[in-house]
Computed example of a mutant assay.
Amino acid sequence: MTPAGGYIGVQEWNSTGETGSPVTREQPPLALDRLKALAAAPELRAAADAMPVDHRLAAEPDTGPVTPGGSISATLSRLVPHGIKIVRKSGPDDDGFGYVVLGDGRGTSLVQVNVQPDMRDVEGELFGPDAKVLPDGTKVVTHRQPGEKGIPGIVWWSVDTIRPDGRRVVISAFNSGAQNTPATRETPALTMKQLEAFSTDPKWHPQG
């Protein structure tokens, strides 16, 4: 949010599209500091300030980090069940997107989380009539699909959620320690039920 009330958001993925496109690399191309520099560019601020103000956003500004606590990996680590080891994780500045690699003695498993503050503008595209709706209004969709092309045996499980306020949490798990390396196990270290519990946990939300 700029001082004049303009809103700038910059996002990137490790594929050619947000959904429905195969993964092409382990991590998105730009580091977090470069994304922040891009969002703060004077040219973008000038363009944002020239647009009509969304009074809904202006009335409820969100000046804090996307992830409560400011770290995806720290929040995710607190959710990992007892008995599963965290082999490695993204750094402390991974606000918005981060990962952990889990090990339970049966092979490593990459788990990624993406938190986006307000995605109501694309809610209809991402969450169709078949989406599960929880008692608090959160919508949930799940996906099981092959991983990156050319990598033997990779499977990709994901749970996509959006709350009534538009906050979206997407969690993905793989049966390998990276998206672009051969499978180390038959399925990811976390079940789909666990992934859904992770993605709907209050820890991802400011009031949590």
Rank of each mutant, 00 (worst) to 15 (best):
P92S: 09
D136S: 10
I171Q: 02
D160N: 11
R168I: 05
D93Y: 06
L126T: 03
M119W: 04
Q207S: 13
T108N: 08
L76I: 07
P164M: 00
T67R: 14
G137Y: 01
D93Q: 13
S109W: 00
E18W: 14
E18R: 14
L35C: 07
W204C: 03
M119N: 07
Q27Y: 07
R34S: 10
A39L: 07
G147N: 05
R78V: 08
S21Q: 11
Q27I: 06
D136T: 10
H55S: 07
M51N: 13
F97K: 09
V80T: 04
P206S: 09
W204A: 02
T161W: 01
K193S: 12
P68S: 03
K85C: 04
D130M: 08
G91W: 08
G96V: 14
A183D: 14
G20C: 09
R163G: 00
A74W: 01
Y7A: 09
P52W: 09
G137N: 03
D54K: 10
P182R: 10
T16E: 15
D62S: 13
Q11V: 13
E148P: 14
A40R: 14
T63I: 11
I86W: 12
Y99D: 00
N175E: 02
Y7T: 10
Y99P: 01
W13L: 00
S90T: 14
S15K: 12
I8V: 15
R34L: 09
W13R: 06
Q116S: 09
M51K: 14
N114S: 15
P65M: 09
V66M: 15
H82P: 08
A40K: 10
Q27T: 11
A46F: 07
L44S: 00
P52M: 13
A58R: 14
G9L: 07
H82T: 13
G124Y: 00
R120T: 12
G83W: 04
L102Y: 04
R144F: 06
S109P: 06
E12I: 12
P65Q: 10
E196W: 07
A58E: 05
R144T: 13
S176E: 11
G147T: 00
I72R: 01
A31L: 13
V159F: 03
L38C: 04
G147L: 11
K85H: 15
A178I: 07
G137H: 05
P164I: 02
G20E: 06
S77H: 10
E18N: 12
M192C: 07
R185Y: 12
R185S: 12
F127E: 03
L32P: 03
V115K: 10
T142H: 04
T63P: 02
S21C: 09
T75K: 01
S199M: 06
A197K: 06
I154N: 05
V115M: 11
D130A: 13
M119F: 05
N175F: 02
G70Y: 08
K203P: 01
T63M: 06
W13F: 12
V140Y: 03
S73L: 00
L35K: 12
A131N: 05
Y99Q: 02
G91L: 07
G124K: 03
I86F: 05
Q179K: 13
I86P: 02
A4D: 01
N180M: 15
G69I: 08
G150D: 15
A39E: 01
I8M: 07
T138S: 05
P81S: 12
G64Y: 06
P68E: 02
T187Y: 13
R78Q: 15
S21G: 03
I171M: 02
G5L: 01
